[in-house]
């Protein structure tokens, strides 16, 4: 056979094989597999883009525009407009660096890392449905609704680039079904040239460590470290599992945070010792008469205080009365779920 023809056959075969292995395109993929792909793509693809976010914080609507660079597990967001303008957030190896050129200061936070199995847990508790197609940043996207199987949980709507599976637009709905935040790429470039030194931390600036997430093992006796024996949730809302526990030692009196997740949503249980002499200890309302509006709920014969709409992805906070401890449950779940948690766990 002539060499030229042989080469053409090989090229054709390779092209055909890659077309087959790419699964015949996104049209035939199940929404779940698209979502899984998007979950991976969101963190791993090399991209450069401009993203706008509108979010409802307690103080009102906040609009933010960032320039985003992502490559090799590192992500840099430069705030171009909005309250954080001029600042940058750099994420590397699970650490979050908040860079403030104005103050020449870097603040380091180590939020807990979510294991990749979260997406499987999420798919057990949320159903994914196609909701059409749209063009975002001039890219064809498939729209997916992520809706809770168990009522009283939040929803998301994501627009996923049909070709790269990168999520280009996200809408977050809280457990009341209200839109809380929209974030959308207005420009996106895949596999861009990454400028030199982009993901480098500035040198010589003051660095502040934000302690807060020292992981602890709940199986051992923590009373010496905490000053109290923690009360854990034995009856969890449907779909939720324990995902971790942390101590924030820098809080006035060590603060215990026990995190429960259903794969997408989180409920946090906070406990710390009540500082003596502060009355009922409904701590969030102190400080020069500035008050946060709360509602008194009589649940399980206990008078709890519930605060609603406390922030994006935060939902509600309920303070459960206890003689020695300040117990707060925070999470974006319905009032019904909150009541269930209190009544089933704090008799």
């Amino acid at each position: 056979m002539r060499k030229g023809a042989f080469i053409w056959i090989v090229i054709t075969l390779i092209t055909m094989l890659s077309a087959i292995s790419s699964g015949g395109g996104i049209a035939s993929q199940s929404p779940e597999s698209i979502l899984k792909g998007a979950y991976k793509a969101e963190d791993t693809l090399q991209v450069h883009g401009i993203k706008e976010t509108i979010a409802t914080l307690p103080k009102g609507t906040v609009k933010v525009r960032v320039e985003l660079w992502q490559s090799n597990g590192k992500r840099l967001q430069i705030y171009l407009a909005g309250p954080l303008v001029g600042d940058k957030v750099l994420e590397m190896k699970g650490d979050v660096y908040y860079i403030s050129p104005k103050l020449r200061r870097v603040t380091v936070t180590h939020p807990p890392i979510v294991p990749n199995s979260a997406i499987d847990l999420m798919l057990r508790n949320y159903r994914v449905e196609r909701a059409g197609e749209d063009l975002i940043a001039e890219r064809r996207c498939v729209i997916l609704w992520i809706k809770p199987v168990h009522r009283g949980n939040p929803s998301r709507k994501v627009w996923i680039d049909s070709e790269t599976l990168f999520p280009l637009r996200k809408e977050s709905y809280n457990s009341n079904g209200e839109l809380e935040s929209v974030s959308m790429f207005t420009e996106i470039e895949y596999a861009p040239d990454i400028p030199e030194g982009l993901f480098k931390l500035p040198e010589g600036w003051m660095t502040v460590e934000r302690p807060g997430f020292k992981p602890i093992d709940l199986d051992r006796d923590l009373s010496s470290e905490l000053g109290f024996k923690p009360i854990l949730l034995k009856n969890l809302p449907e779909g939720y599992v324990l995902s971790g526990a942390f101590i924030n030692a820098a809080a006035p009196g060590p603060l215990l945070q026990v995190k429960y997740t259903d794969g997408m949503n989180q409920i946090s249980l906070f406990e710390r010792i009540k500082v003596r002499g502060r009355g009922m200890g409904m701590g969030w309302m102190r400080g020069r008469g500035r008050r946060m509006m709360g509602r008194k709920m009589m649940w399980g014969r206990k008078a709890c205080m519930m605060f609603e709409d406390i922030g994006v992805q935060a939902g509600r906070a309920v303070m459960v009365p206890h003689p020695r401890l300040l117990i707060t449950i925070v999470g974006d779940v319905s009032e019904e779920i909150m009541r269930h948690i209190v009544e089933e766990n704090f008799r």
Binding site: V96, V114, Q257, M264, G311
Partner: peptide, 21 residues
């Protein structure tokens, strides 16, 4: 603390979450 702990949750928007830090 609660919000920052959700940093890595699937499809969260870290640009908005950074407002808390």
């Amino acid at each position: 603390q609660h919000v920052v702990a959700a940093w890595d949750s699937p499809f969260s928007d870290t640009a908005a979450l950074a407002l808390y830090i």
